[in-house]
Amino acid sequence: MENRQKENRIITDGLSYRYPEAERDAVSDVALRVRAGEFVCILGHNGSGKSTLAKLFNALYVPTEGTVWVCGMDTKDDELVFDIRQNAGMVFQNPDNQIVATVVEEDVAFGLENNGVPPQEIRVRIDEALAAVGMSERAKKAPHMLSGGQKQRVAIAGVLAMRPSVIILDESTAMLDPSGRAEVMNTVRRLNREEGISIVLITHFMTEAAQADMIYVMDGGKIAMTGTPREVFSQIGRVRALGLDVPPMTALAETLGKAGLPVRPDVLTVEEMVEEVCRLQSKG
């Protein structure tokens, strides 16, 4: 168990959750894991249970059945709640509704203040966190003067200052414009690569999902598909049947394939498509 915990940030086993007075489970018998340093993406149409799952990772909800371990801590254990929340930080969808303070740096300090971190230490950590998301210059600004992408970066900094093992982004890019989305995705990818923080990204954007190490597709509270982006998206028919889409280049690969051109079905990006076309050419 000790070893499993070291390499896994989140493990769920037979995880189910039913909202009070609901008729069926919002999350049903889910088993998944998020390894140290792994970038996991959870896809699924609205109402498929993604957001409920995210809230189970952070002990905001406690499983009706089954278990969630965050860094080896069972989220059902009341005494560990704050340790779990410190380890599994969450960034939510609406940038306006998760910033508490009237000054950027104070918002970043919020979680640390809650955990009773000494003021000198808070200072050091918020400076680090703001630098890591590229918002140092705006430390004294009022949140409502920032763009959506900047607000989400502040929210990420607030989580980062807690020194988490895993950051869960619950549709955090959904309300942003393309440049805001790019800001957030670049920040998240860098934290993942350079700081080794595990990422759980919940999104509707397939191009974002394509950047993950592992994708879980949810449907009706259950995990319907699992695999690397290539494995998942190359099954275009199934993905679409689950109310989702595939990256444009994967769709194009399908078109070419149907027309008789032997293109790999798991092309994800423009670069790969170019390579693929050139490869075919040099072969033919």
């Binding site: 078109t255 070419l256 027309a259 075919l280 050419q281």
Partner: peptide, 20 residues
């Protein structure tokens, strides 16, 4: 449009011009 680009690729592959 994706269709246009797809047609160009197919035309190119079909013709089999020199490799890039």
């Amino acid at each position: 449009l994706p269709g246009e680009v797809a047609r160009a690729i197919l035309a190119f592959a079909g013709k089999g011009e020199e490799p890039c």
